[in-house]
């Protein structure tokens, strides 16, 4: 067997309007447009009886089956419905040429990329999204799973209200096993910062890398001293200064659960500088004297104006 990257791209040039009909469940889907390429197969926007859905198709039946297994598990464990898109159908499609393709249909998540959203709507959202992600991760980890391939490209911000959603769950791995799928830049093994064993701290490292990636979209090389490179990048990113302490801990693998990190981020986000609302007696006094000065000035200027008017009045008569 041959893994050929060029043939992967050529695999499914499905033109809009193609009808995909399932061999087993007999559902029909009309291709609308291509949405993107995953690690396995291609994702299309499709139409099923007037509803929009995302359809992932590949000639590798086993990979599709593996991903479907993950989506089914997520369906079982998800609480508020944000752990990955929900699964709608799984089937095979027999291409007129005789080739067999496996596909699955999932909920279509419409949204903006995380980086784009933050660039357009401001850095204030970063903290909020981190909280949302950490909440989801906490839920997933409690159920015995690790997300694995957590990266900016796998996150979308669905609109009104803005909410981070995971779109590609191919890397989701049971805790204690080896990470199924990863991307070098987000992988702590690549940075010499830990193992590729599925444990909560693996996802937290990747989450910190997502935050770095938002402000360094070109990514960066690890160099000879990977840890030093990371710490320097973190230290020099102005927008992340506020979260520097928890992000550093996440990169170093200090946290054993996402709730620990969430707690610390929450504390940072809820912090209010203690100046404006309270008024000490000294400042109060200062304010009143200032007010008195101002009222004196006001009455004098009114007097002068009145005087001027009076003079004019006399002159005119």
């Amino acid at each position: 067997m041959k893994i050929d990257q060029t043939s992967k791209k050529r695999e499914h040039p499905l033109p809009p309007g193609t009808i995909i009909s399932g061999k087993w469940h007999r559902n029909q889907y009309k291709i609308v447009k291509k949405l993107g390429n995953g690690a396995v197969g291609t994702v299309y926007l499709c139409d099923h009886q007037g509803n929009r859905a995302a359809l992932k198709i590949s000639s590798s039946g086993s990979s599709i089956t593996t991903e479907v297994n993950v989506l089914k598990t997520l369906k079982k464990v998800q609480g508020n419905g944000s752990l990955g898109p929900s699964l709608l159908d799984v089937d095979d499609w027999l291409h007129p040429s005789g080739a067999r393709y496996s596909f699955y249909v999932m909920e279509y998540v419409n949204g903006q990329g995380l980086g784009t959203f933050i660039r357009l709507n401001g850095d204030d959202w970063l903290g909020t999204f981190m909280m949302q992600l950490l909440g989801d991760l906490e839920h997933l980890h409690r159920s015995g799973w690790v997300f694995g391939d957590l990266k900016t490209e796998n996150l979308l911000v669905a609109s009104s209200p803005p909410r981070v959603r995971w779109i590609d769950v191919g890397g989701t791995t049971q805790i204690g096993r080896s990470i199924k799928e990863y991307t070098e830049f987000y992988d702590r093994g690549y940075w010499n910062m830990g193992s590729r064993k599925a444990e909560p701290s693996y996802d937290l490292f990747a989450l910190a890398m997502v935050m770095l990636h938002v402000y360094h979209p070109g990514r960066f090389d690890k160099g000879n001293q990977p840890e030093k490179t990371l710490m320097n990048k973190l230290g020099s990113t102005r927008q992340l200064k506020r979260f520097q302490v928890p992000l550093k801990k996440a990169l170093k693998g200090t946290y054993t659960s996402s709730s620990q990190m969430k707690q610390e981020i929450a504390t940072l986000l809820m912090y209010r500088p203690q100046t404006s609302p309270k008024m000490t007696r000294a400042t109060a006094r200062k304010v009143t004297t200032a007010n008195r000065d101002r009222s004196l000035l006001e009455s004098i200027s009114i007097l002068i104006a009145a005087g001027l008017f009076y003079l004019f009045h006399i002159l005119l008569i």
Partner: peptide, 22 residues
């Protein structure tokens, strides 16, 4: 072969393959 099974059962078989690989 695996491909001749309906998708539901195929999922169970793939789980076995994955367990073995791990």
């Amino acid at each position: 072969s695996l491909e001749d099974l309906p998708p539901e059962q195929r999922g169970e078989v793939m789980e076995v393959v994955e367990d073995l690989g791990e």
